[in-house]
Design a protein around this nucleic acid. Structure first.
Lengths: 134, 134
DNA sequence: CTAATAGTTGCACTATAGTGCAACTATGCA
DNA sequence: TGCATAGTTGCACTATAGTGCAACTATTAG
């Protein structure tokens, strides 16, 4: 799973970008759960191409594992090596200095409620979420 | 001390560089101790202008606090907010994938032994340390 | 089969970050 | 006082990272 070949500073590089940190902040809330791209798109109000790219970086750094179910790719946090557990503890302890996180989290929780049978079925709903927080 | 104005991703940016991570890896060993630039120069075998720059970045991100004693500036880790404690726990748990850290640590320990009265008095000794590890 | 769409990626561009060289500032010693 | 040196920083440059647009691939529904 987690490749020993990943350079140590790469895990910090993975979180050194605002968007990627926003993604991981949402996912550490329920670290055993997964989220698909459209759920993240709706929560973060960021374009899918952008988030798809960032998810790839997180995956390459060993923080995310992904699996496909039909059209949907679900991403979950990798929690196995100790240092990743510690890293997520760091993320959880961060203050919300720019207030972005709280709004992200609310949208995320609302968005996850749209699941049916524990899976995302509705695709991207950004327009609805955008006007809610407008 | 630690400024509330620091952006969250900045603490990860601070460690997203190999050299800066090498610095912090040495300092977490004895988190209550401090080190001056020449001690780090000799341990990491990197030029002083480079390390001085990197130390400034770590300071700006809130990870380091510095104080001057005569010609020497001593730097120590800031441990106060919970997330920094967690961050250093992450650093401690990292594997030494590229084997650099072990050599750094040995030089660091050797170099700290050159202190007199708990203070660095000898200035930069890189040449001596370079041939030791040559 | 066609159309819609979740998700990915090429290309080109802009923005940001790291660093070598040289010079500077501050401190201590002879 | 002059010299040495710990430590810092300006300048110019190279390297790296993020992103918008457009196009692509894979899956599903009608």
């Amino acid at each position: 799973m987690h490749s020993i070949a990943v350079q140590s500073e790469e895990v910090f590089q993975a979180l050194a970008d605002e968007t990627r940190l926003r993604i991981v902040r949402l996912m550490v809330v329920e670290a055993h759960e997964s989220a698909c791209l459209c759920e993240l798109v709706d929560s973060l109000l960021e374009p899918s191409y952008k988030l798809s790219r960032h998810l790839a970086i997180l995956r390459r750094a060993g923080l995310l594992a992904s699996h496909k179910e039909g059209r949907w790719v679900y991403h979950r946090l990798v929690t196995k090596p100790t240092y990743l557990k510690q890293l997520y503890a760091t993320v959880k302890a961060l203050p919300d200095t720019s207030k972005i996180y709280r709004a992200d989290l609310k949208r995320f929780r609302d968005r996850m409620r749209l699941r049916e049978d524990g899976r995302c079925q509705v695709g991207i709903q950004s327009e609805a979420f955008r006007s809610e927080t407008g």
